[in-house]
Amino acid sequence: MTETAHPRTATLRARAEIDLAALRANVRTLRARASGAALMAVVKSDAYGHGAVPCARAAVAAGATWLGTATPEEALALRAAGIGPPVRILCWLWTPGGPWREAVEADLDVSVSALWALAEVREAARAAGRPARVQLKADTGLGRNGCQPADWPELVGEALRAEAEGLIRITGLWSHFACADEPGHPSIAAQLDCFRTVVADAEAAGVRPEVRHIANSPATLTLPESHFDLVRTGIAVYGVSPSPELGTPADFGLRPVMTLSAALALVKHLPGGHGVSYGHHFVTAGETTVGLVPVGYADGIPRHASGTGPVLVGGKWRTVAGRIAMDQFVVDLGGDLPEAGAEAVLFGPGDRGEPTAEDWAQAAGTIAYEIVTRIGKRVPRVYVNEEPNGREG
């Protein structure tokens, strides 16, 4: 669980400020994009690094009726935090021997892609003395989790038998896109066609699901024909574009939720020809000043952004000088002399001219999802713009 600190009183080495008003606004924007469908806010991986419980509460306050997690442990933690029905929670990444009974007793929706999982959830339902809420997942082309179309009739048939026994309720039919973030990719139409087919086949066999869903964040934003009964929005909830090719957050009416900053630990002069950080991959061209930013790859700052990562200090963009180390890195200040303790903003919404998570993704050769998700537990999350009752924190 991430730490929290009060923004007005805590003096912090570094902080990830989480704007819950921005998150609520993003959820409302996404709901408007898919006005005919319910909205699931995906809060897996500690809400993509933003803090699962506060973000889940904020999303529900803004109208999300479903929450999504990868692991059952993540889902059970939400229930333990008091997020109960009528909010539905779907968890989809199961391995044999998982906490099926606990999931059934917590009234979670569990995803089933194979007969072994169906067998385990049936036994859990017997032990719990109540039916399990089961969603059947089809592999429509991603080639990852999900049941292949050739095996779908058998899985559906066994699930219907379990439902007739009173052991499960088939609450959903779902799948996941492979290339929804690549506009015009031929797999998108092919997966939609396959999904419509497997849904029709299941319903013809007698399945009456509460929800049918395939749309992730990019599909929610760009493919209205994919919305069905429910859309699953993950990275877009946090105001990050799922793909630069699709548009910026502002293009979709979204606002980044996380601002990552640190206090300069040291500012000093260096002569020309002086090596900086491990390996001396950066050598000063002439006399300059440098600032020490007290975060590193142990805090989730990507080492691949050594020499390229952007930071705003004193209203100017600076660049990481040399290698990013475990706990710290250096920026070249070009002769400027901010005081120790001055703010260094690594990324945020961009309102003040600061870099964004996408800028760091470009610098590190990765995606913005990874930038926000990897920010570690040593960086406290500071929640701002909570609801007046304070229940989000």
Rank of each mutant, 00 (worst) to 15 (best):
H6C: 09
T11P: 00
L12C: 10
R13H: 01
A14S: 15
E17C: 04
A21W: 01
T29H: 04
L30K: 11
A38F: 10
A38N: 08
V43G: 12
K44T: 07
S45N: 11
D46T: 04
A47W: 10
A47N: 11
Y48M: 13
A61D: 15
A64F: 13
T65L: 07
L67W: 09
A70E: 02
T71V: 03
G84I: 00
P86D: 08
W92N: 02
W92G: 15
G98D: 15
L108D: 09
A114Y: 06
A114R: 14
A117E: 14
L118F: 11
R122H: 03
E123G: 00
A124E: 04
R126G: 06
R126K: 11
A132Y: 05
K137A: 03
A138D: 03
D139H: 05
D139E: 09
T140H: 09
G141R: 02
C147D: 07
P149I: 06
P153D: 05
V156I: 12
L160F: 12
L160T: 08
E163G: 11
T171Y: 05
G172E: 07
S175I: 04
C179D: 13
A180D: 14
G184M: 04
H185F: 08
P186A: 13
V198M: 06
V198I: 14
A205L: 15
E210W: 07
I214T: 02
A219R: 01
T220P: 00
L221S: 08
L221C: 08
L223C: 07
L223Q: 06
E225Y: 10
G234V: 07
G234P: 06
A236C: 14
G239V: 09
P242Y: 05
P244F: 02
G253Q: 08
L254S: 00
V257S: 05
T259Q: 10
A262T: 02
L266R: 14
L270G: 06
G272E: 10
V276N: 04
S277G: 03
A285N: 03
A285G: 14
T288Q: 09
V293Y: 10
V295Y: 02
G314A: 13
T319A: 10
V320W: 09
G322P: 06
R323W: 06
A325Y: 01
D327I: 00
Q328Y: 14
D332T: 00
G334K: 02
A340N: 01
A342L: 13
A342H: 04
F347Q: 09
P355C: 12
A357R: 00
Q362W: 11
Q362Y: 10
Q362D: 11
G365H: 10
Y369N: 13
R374C: 07
I375K: 04
I375V: 15
I375P: 05
V379T: 15
V384I: 14
E387P: 11
N389W: 10
G390H: 13
G393R: 15
